[in-house]
Nucleic acid binder design. Structure first.
Lengths: 342, 342
DNA sequence: CTGAAAGCGCTAACAG
DNA sequence: CTGTTAGCGCTTTCAG
């Protein structure tokens, strides 16, 4: 049997260390926090006492007075299943955020909140000032939490423009979604495609909305009509959407999919339907994930710097936490990567 | 420009709410924490004051006195890249932990610590009592942190037997690795295979060590000699190891890979070498990941209940946090799943 | 350069 | 049922 220690085991406090070292609590605090204004011999004595007692500062007590925790949260309002799917978005953002926070010696706290209960807990956790700042990735619909946190004075950064009319300004970093899509669709137009369809992303997510907007905008300037099917960014939904598109308009000769995963799914549906890519139908994706180079044929796609989104979010957040001013929106570039599929 | 609020914006405290509602701090505290021993009209008054002021409890202050945070950490000592690779282990454990913590209304705090600096931060974070308990998954080598936390009186659970001579007992949940491997190798022996090789996992991880032990143990009872190559659980390493194995012993007729991913990689190397599976060489993997059913041929494998590892870790941890006693080791069963590859 | 004193915001006896 | 009181463990003026 293992006996639960239950936290009740006496933990040495500053007081204890002070007594042992024969100094005051204030002095111990200074040494522990690296103040240089303490005489060397005393510093040594304090450090020995710390070591002997195994003293570790109580962070709750410290942050109660300093109002800082030296940690930041990244909130992913998704189920673990989706976070760990083969969509490399989360992976990239987390990597970027990690790197930047590492450099600032801040602890990254990852909060995954797929369920409603989870979302409520995250709200309590962040509003309760367990972290110095909060980042959001992959928001669905118009989540009121970012604005609520800002009203509480807690720094917030989002990846992707937050949906909903903001009563307060929520800063965010995004990539030039519309510009990227427009250049993709233009490429299709320029190469003489007549019937250009799109497989769009979910319309409760800003990336889904913006990419559809980009598609419509690019077609508006031409005389082509739009042909739309809705997916949810997954491979499977791409296949389903492509089939439907072929049903709707058997003569379509190009398709822009709002994610590489959906483009991959579309490739499969096209193959099943006996269409050759790019001869019969040109395909363009979005994201430039690793896999895009290994599909048959390799995917023309719009590259977005996912990892940099994470870095930029973290960097701006650190500035906010430090009390600096920042630009409310940071826009990162996208780039059309031309391969064999279009 | 967005002005940083920097946390300095006056946040209403219990005191403020109490004054506004015309009651004492204690009463407000009772209402906020759902005590029923407060007269209904007063409760209502307090709730209104809370609403009007937008009061949110300061969790640092609360946990300073309650000694609880209502959150638990799951530590993944890996880089984000590996955590988000196609190895479904992390995904499964996180899912299991999430579900169990959800049920207990505790916040899951995910700490990813690939670098040394990251590991140090995690140490400070957990030792500083930011969480009520700590879980470890996928430990490498003999990490001293679990034992250190236990000595501090912080409840700890590990997935997989912790390596290194423990000065204190670190409770863990594991699956019956050895039993699973033994049944796999027996299956190979029973079907008449003579030269059974293994692609083992990394030897700084307990899963890697135990599965190799199982292999050796099963062969010890027979007259077969062991043929070993070391991988690191990734698909790529499986391919490399299989090539080497074929070099070492071109006549081998069976291979046990310590993970399905490595088995998948091995399949590829075998195909390249012109070996048919299972006719020339039988292959067995470990994990029973989704993909195992879609390989060519489908993989015979040892199923381990990954998600349940997470659930069990979280459940036991909650008991420790509650001050209950638990069994120091929880063993979960494995099961040989026979498909076409062996 | 060091110590004393005053809280940070909250909960939990203990009285009344 | 409600208010008073006493800290939780730490940092930070302010004196000395």
């Amino acid at each position: 049997m293992t006996r639960a220690k239950n936290g009740t085991r006496e933990r040495p406090t500053l007081e204890a260390v002070a007594k042992r070292a024969g100094v005051s609590r204030a002095t111990v605090s200074r040494v522990v926090n690296g103040s240089t204004t303490v005489a060397e011999p005393i510093q040594e004595a304090v450090r020995r006492a710390v070591r002997e007692l195994g003293y570790v500062p109580n962070l709750a007590a410290r942050s109660l007075v300093t109002q800082r925790t030296d940690s930041a949260a990244l909130i992913l309002p998704e189920t673990p299943t989706r976070v760990f799917s083969d969509d490399p978005f989360f992976h990239g953002v987390i990597r970027g955020v990690s790197m930047e926070l590492d450099a600032a010696d801040k602890q990254l706290v990852l909060l995954i909140a797929g369920s409603t209960a989870g979302h409520d807990r995250v709200e309590r956790y962040t509003m309760g000032r367990h972290v110095d700042g909060v980042m959001f990735a992959s928001m669905h619909g118009a989540d009121p939490l970012p604005a609520a946190l800002i009203r509480m004075g807690i720094p917030v950064m989002c990846s992707g423009r937050p949906l909903g009319r903001a009563t307060v300004e929520v800063p965010y970093v995004d990539v030039d979604q519309i510009g990227g899509v427009v250049s993709a669709v233009r490429h299709l137009l320029d190469s003489g495609r007549k019937r250009i369809a799109t497989i769009s992303g979910p319309q409760d997510m800003v990336a889904g909305i913006d990419r559809l907007t980009g598609y419509r905008q690019a077609l508006r300037d031409s005389d082509r009509r739009s042909i739309v099917a809705i997916g949810d960014f997954t491979r499977e939904s791409g296949t389903v959407a492509m089939r439907q598109l072929l049903d709707d308009d058997p003569k379509l000769d190009a398709v822009f999919a709002a994610s590489d995963l959906m483009a991959h799914g579309a490739l499969r549906a096209l193959r099943e339907a006996g269409r050759r890519v790019p001869d019969d139908v040109a395909v363009i994706g979005f994201d430039d994930i690793e896999m895009a180079r290994y599909t048959e044929p390799p995917l023309t796609t719009v590259r977005q710097p996912i990892q940099q989104i994470g870095r930029e979010m973290a960097r701006q957040l650190m500035r906010l936490v430090a009390g600096e001013e920042i630009e409310p929106v940071t826009m990162l570039p996208t780039e059309l990567i031309i391969r064999e599929s279009a």
